[in-house]
Design a protein around this nucleic acid. Structure first.
Lengths: 114, 114
DNA sequence: CAGACCGGTTTGCGTCGCAAACCTATTGTA
DNA sequence: TACAATAGGTTTGCGACGCAAACCGGTCTG
């Protein structure tokens, strides 16, 4: 009884829902542009911009601005470090959620009483 | 292609690691006192106090102060609402993490569309 | 040339998470 | 009895964060 209980300390850079959304998308498509991320995530431009900036600062993604025709195109790509951080995050959170996956009023489970 | 992609919008009250830790513990033991939570989570007293206060305000846990001998004992217990929120959170995050569970690390992918 | 739009970035602000400081009651201990 | 330390929490102060509005340089249209 009273196990050590695994510390819940996810990478907060990844844990933030907005950034997690970005990372999930990038892990699926590997290379997306601003507008694509914008519509997929549903966030505002400012929001998206600042979050991508933070992810880039952490080297989790790379941002590449190319010139296409008359205008620019900004593409975002997951780095190896980002993929690694994401994998770590997944493992960590999976472990945490598994502590829950047989109790706590699941849809197919009788809820706990008081 | 370009599926709607499930919105990543976890209950932020639950999503915060410190509170998630508290909820996970309470879902496992149902009824824990302050000191127990303190040592299991490893957080400071102030921190624990404010987070439990927020969880109580949301009716996710209930706080009961009893008098034991000369001093008081504060016990924390998950409410039905808390268990429900936790189950929802688990399902939500499980879904999100599943988007990841076969990739995130391999540099071999289809390019973007738009 | 004016204005609308596109693709982003910067600014401002309310909220949050954190630990230090504080508080009240109890327990040594001289 | 006094007085210091400890236990069990709560409140305070502050830095960091997430958010959307405002802004900005370039294009395209009329």
């Amino acid at each position: 009884m009273s196990d050590p209980l695994p510390r819940i300390e996810p990478d907060r850079l990844v844990h933030e829902p907005a950034r997690l959304a970005i990372l999930v998308i990038l892990s699926a498509v590997e290379e997306a542009d601003f507008l694509f991320l914008l519509e997929q995530t549903g966030m505002t431009k400012g929001n998206l911009s600042s979050h991508t900036a933070r992810l880039e600062a952490a080297r989790y993604i790379e941002i590449e601005k190319t010139i296409v025709g008359k205008t620019t195109r900004t593409v975002y790509r997951l780095t190896d470090a980002g993929a690694h951080a994401l994998a770590l995050y997944r493992d960590h959170m999976t472990g945490v959620l598994e502590l829950l996956t047989s109790r706590a009023g699941s849809p197919s489970n009788p809820p706990t009483e008081r």
